[in-house]
Design a protein around this nucleic acid. Structure first.
Lengths: 236, 236
DNA sequence: AAAAATAAATGTATTTTTTACACTAAATAC
DNA sequence: GTATTTAGTGTAAAAAATACATTTATTTTT
């Protein structure tokens, strides 16, 4: 038994993969291996298969094209312009992944044709992928202001200056070091480690790590990581 | 030219339609007119057609099944469990609509088989529609805490007590009248009218209306309509 | 016409949060 | 041992959020 006389469509997932290398935000792209737009830069995408959900499809595609596994991955939204793909109509459900670039650098370089691009040096993208990236970035800015989501972009141990760079980079603002530290520490999300990171200063900055329990319990809370003042910049 | 050897699927939109009648939140449902689950209660749904986007499909479905037009309508997310519809696999993209029940009461009663249900007296719904409603409600609570979205549920002229009932109803909390009024007025979203609504008290409450300019310019701002204290209730 | 009843409207003091702002501390390089 | 570099820290002022009770406008009742 089937629904008769109804249109059936291709459904794809496209992954917007944001990474942070300690200094900058980057986007992971691949050169598309098949027509149309062969060799052009593209998000990681693939068609949904019969036995998998969209979430599963996104995980699979991400893994097949980059080797990535168990990373933060979340549905963004569906894109559905009938002619977004010139070959045939495809409904695309976009997913956003956040990863620590250094953790996977080797693997991505070695085995796949994916490449990291700085956010302000993106090449031309196929189809409506540029729009997807813009939507994803706005969404990330929104979420990161309320939830401690940016930790997904950092290694397990990180320093307060790194954390601040992460926030400042996303909103392209400067924050006061003392106020930033106070706000972050007041969440109780951070555990101070005994060692220091000496790679970027003589004095060295203490490492911190996430308190996973607090993280899981408080993720959905509205935490106001970024002040309203700073956010208003986004609306100008 | 087509993508060969790829699975094609039915894609549907389902509309979660929230309404407010001045006292309570309600959900608009219809009795499904065809198998499977004929006669069971369902969200407004329909398959996407060849020439329309998902947004257009949602508008069309909403209009066909209820006569509603030009209402607040926004994509929620895609639901994709392979067996969510027992007949055949269907990818469903859920949309949320917000309307003022009284404005459309007549029309919905007269021409369609749709019916409003109080949120805590929902009948059994088909497929995964119950999950969609829960997701949509959580999403509405989230958004309404940050953006002046609940005005979509009110008539053009409304009173401060009505507005407070609207917020209190969504979060199932009591708010202080003086603090609530001060917060809402401080947004500059409200224009005081000269007339009073005398339907619910002897003294009567002044009508207010939305300042559309401020509304449009500030919608994306984070306005903190509901305090963090009150929101934490949701996470317990 | 006065009194009672009902819901709307309003202000202030206290606490909490956010902001603005500059010097000292630790380690290394020379 | 002096200079250099970045990390780390405190306090006062302003703004926002909270807790809390009486007066006002109008209608209904007597």
């Amino acid at each position: 038994m089937k629904y008769s006389n109804q249109l059936r469509l291709l459904v794809a997932v496209d992954c917007i993969i944001f990474g942070f290398d300690g200094e900058q935000y980057k986007l992971l792209l691949i050169q598309r291996g098949f027509a149309p737009e062969k060799e052009k830069w593209s998000l990681m995408g693939g068609f949904v298969r019969a036995e998998e959900t969209l979430d599963m499809a996104a995980e699979r595609v991400l893994n097949q094209l980059t080797g990535l596994k168990d990373v933060y991955l979340e549905q963004l939204q569906a894109f559905s312009e009938p002619d977004r793909d010139p070959i045939e109509r495809v409904i695309a459900v976009a997913y956003v992944a956040l990863i620590d670039i250094k953790k996977y650098q080797q693997q991505i370089d070695d085995s796949f044709h994916a490449q990291w691009f700085t956010m302000n040096e993106l090449p031309q993208l196929i189809f409506d992928h540029r729009e997807m990236v813009t939507t994803a970035l706005n969404n990330l800015r929104y979420k990161a202001a309320l939830h401690p989501i940016l930790f997904e972009l950092l290694p397990e141990k990180f320093t307060l200056p790194q954390l601040q760079t992460l926030y400042e980079g996303l909103y392209d603002i400067k924050m006061d070091k003392r106020n930033f530290t106070r706000k972050l520490l007041s969440t109780n999300l951070l555990k101070k480690e005994k060692e220091k990171d000496k790679s970027s200063s003589k004095k060295g900055a203490f490492y911190y790590s996430l308190d996973e329990t607090v993280y899981k319990n408080n993720f959905e809370n509205f935490l106001n990581f970024v002040s309203k003042n700073d956010l208003n910049v986004l609306n100008e």
